Amino acid sequence: MRWFLTVLGVIFAVVVFLFLDYSLPSKQTVRITNTYNRLTDIGANAIFYASPDAGTVQNTQGQRDVRFIETVRPNGRPFVYRNEDTGWIWPPYFKYDSSNLHAQATDLRSTSADPRWVSVTSYGWRVSWLSIYPNAIAIKPVAGPDVRPFNWAAQIILLILGALLFLIWRMWNQFRERTIDPAVRSADEAWDRLDARADAARDHIATETAEARGRVRRWWDGIRGR
């Protein structure tokens, strides 16, 4: 049973980590190279795109016109963002300005000869073989490729979640100390009393049996004249 609970706890921790890793905002310093719209096939990966009621239109072939932002990291590796409104779906970023963000990204495009570095705030993962892209939330110009703005939003959310978990843990401990532990002790004491009664009854039966055997033996010996 212990190993089952351990495995269950590990699985739960991994799920929570992946959920937070996908949902929390992240910041990356990049250089924007291109912005464009593309008719994109939405299929099994639809969960990683905005819902149709968030301002996007999907045709009968399962295709959607999605805005993309192409960037290059300081190490030269490319990185692509999508730019979709989130609406009221999860995660709750309430983004409705994808058109404005697209215009801003287009205005901040640059070349390697004359780079302009920006910090892009986004959520989600980039998985090439599944055509999954992080969704850009905000773009802010920075002084250079070495600038790494502190991710205040993610840190504050993690602190709030940590405080909530601590509060839940304290409430559980108090509930266990006030309710569960006394009930367990009462059950243990009741079991001990029951066990003691069973032992006493067993001893009493053994004593009565021995006395009965003694009386029968004396009676039999009396009949035989011993």
Rank of each mutant, 00 (worst) to 15 (best):
N75E: 07
V72Q: 13
G76P: 08
F79M: 14
Q58N: 03
R67S: 14
A54W: 12
P52C: 09
P52I: 14
G43M: 08
F68N: 02
I47W: 13
T71R: 10
I42Y: 05
I47F: 08
G62E: 10
P78N: 00
F68A: 01
R73E: 03
R77E: 13
Y49H: 13
G43A: 15
I42G: 11
G43T: 15
I69W: 01
G55A: 07
I47G: 14
A54T: 15
N45V: 11
V57E: 12
R67A: 09
T56V: 06
I42M: 08
A50D: 12
Q58E: 15
I69A: 02
G62L: 13
T56C: 05
Q58T: 15
R64T: 14
T60Q: 14
A44N: 06
R73Y: 09
A50T: 15
F79T: 02
Y49K: 04
D53Q: 15
G55M: 06
Q61M: 09
D65H: 01
Q58G: 05
A44L: 09
Q63V: 02
G43V: 09
T60N: 03
Q58A: 05
P78F: 07
I69Y: 08
Y49I: 06
R67F: 06
N59F: 02
P74F: 00
Q61F: 14
A50P: 10
E70V: 00
T71E: 12
R64K: 04
Q63F: 02
G62K: 06
G62H: 08
Q63T: 07
G62I: 09
F48N: 13
E70W: 00
